[in-house]
Amino acid sequence: MIAALGLAVKNPATWVFLAFAAVTCGSALVVAVSRSLVYSAYALLLTFFGVAGLYAFLDADFLAAAQLLVYVGGILVLILFGVMLTHKIRDINLSNESTNPVVGAVISGFLFLALAYVSLMTDWQVVEHPASATSGEIGRAFVGKYLLPFEVSSVLLLGALIGAAYLARREKREA
């Protein structure tokens, strides 16, 4: 691990990777601790960008694109709408108070330590892949082996769309 680190430091790509990692982790931290809801939402945007970068480093080109399109373009906009629709414009601070930060920090800290410990201590059986574009393969998988889940998820999306519209629509005023 240490030796690998030494080798990696000489590679400029490593620095790019580290930058992405730092952006991801740092903005995730901002999401978690920021006192303003709007700041949290924008930090989440950065996190999604960072994760997309990580996907790129994992040669997952399709997922990197999907991350940008769906998360940044869709989910984040949804969340921002959520922020704006559930707060009055005059609430400048959009209070986002937190409770029990000590307990939360202890639990999530230990959770991180446990996960990191397992990640670092396990003797992963890493194998060489031939690097290749994933979009075609994913497409093949979607219309082949995973056709049924693919169709089911499309039905799910439709259901979620109708359900969300139903939940969010303005209730009929009764006379």
Binding site: T14, T24, C25, A28, D59, L115, V126
Partner: peptide, 27 residues
């Protein structure tokens, strides 16, 4: 890739922990 598997796992663990922290502390 330029870096090993462990890097990604640790970053994912960090994201996970921050997510848990957010859920635990936010109202």
């Amino acid at each position: 890739p330029v870096v090993g598997l462990e890097w990604f796992l640790v970053i994912a663990a960090f994201l996970f922990a921050t997510g848990v922290f957010t859920i635990l502390t936010r109202k």
